[in-house]
Design a protein around this nucleic acid. Structure first.
Lengths: 117, 117
DNA sequence: TTGACATGCAACCATATAGTTGCATATAGA
DNA sequence: TCTATATGCAACTATATGGTTGCATGTCAA
């Protein structure tokens, strides 16, 4: 379900989605074209995207065409992020308040040593 | 920048964000409380969330309080996903069309052998 | 000042992940 | 039918990642 985030965590996979965004319905060879890594590596990434339901495939003869699956990208991500999003403005206020409340006597924001990094 | 997705990829980290959503401004000890893993493990996860700018911290004496940082969660994720989102309905139509176009003569959706998995 | 509490740093371990290479299989076309 | 093309499967490797433990440091409160 929510390995959507794991699928999106990789730069190569995001790049693949980008390429499909530009031109939908590409084969593995198409998508591999121009990439530095091996065809197999690309295939693995595509499998991960497929498993995460971000990409749908359709065989056409010996070619496996890849399509952006627009549903889960919006649904899952938005559903999860939206929850936080809802409280966004509110949180911004709370945030400011709490920081200010927390800063009582002296300097409460920087510890003595070692804890600055 | 976009290691936000990597940060969100881990279940434990999403759980930590959930806990901060319920009660903002918790210390490491607070957040570790009830978890099965070690305090250090939790601390590492919090560092990752901090680095990804999903959580802001504020020292108060010997306690390091953690706050949901509402900005990047909305911004980065939405910005990236939104791009695909914009073309969502359109893509749904394209998707259907392309699938149908692709299905020309016989059955173009299932290869002979071995390629079903 | 002294002990308890809250956190950080560092070394270490096991497994997951991203990548490679080699070979097998299926389709298209001459 | 034979060859080139498109993909899949499997074994293997290196590094990233999530987790542990031990110890050091800083702060609070008696």
């Amino acid at each position: 379900m929510s390995d959507v985030f794991a699928a999106l965590a990789d730069e190569t996979r995001r790049a693949l989605l980008d390429r499909l965004f530009v031109k939908n319905g590409q084969s593995l060879t198409d998508l591999h074209n121009g990439m530095t890594m091996s065809r197999q590596a690309v295939a693995k990434h595509l499998h991960i995207l497929e498993t995460a339901n971000l990409v749908s495939v359709h065989w056409q003869g010996r070619e496996k065409l890849h399509y952006l699956n627009p549903v889960p990208l919006g649904d899952i991500v938005h559903r999860w992020v939206g929850k936080f999003e809802d409280a966004r403005i509110e949180a911004l206020n709370d945030f400011k308040q709490q920081i200010e409340n927390a800063s009582n006597p002296s300097n409460a924001s920087t510890p003595k040593e070692k804890r600055r990094a």
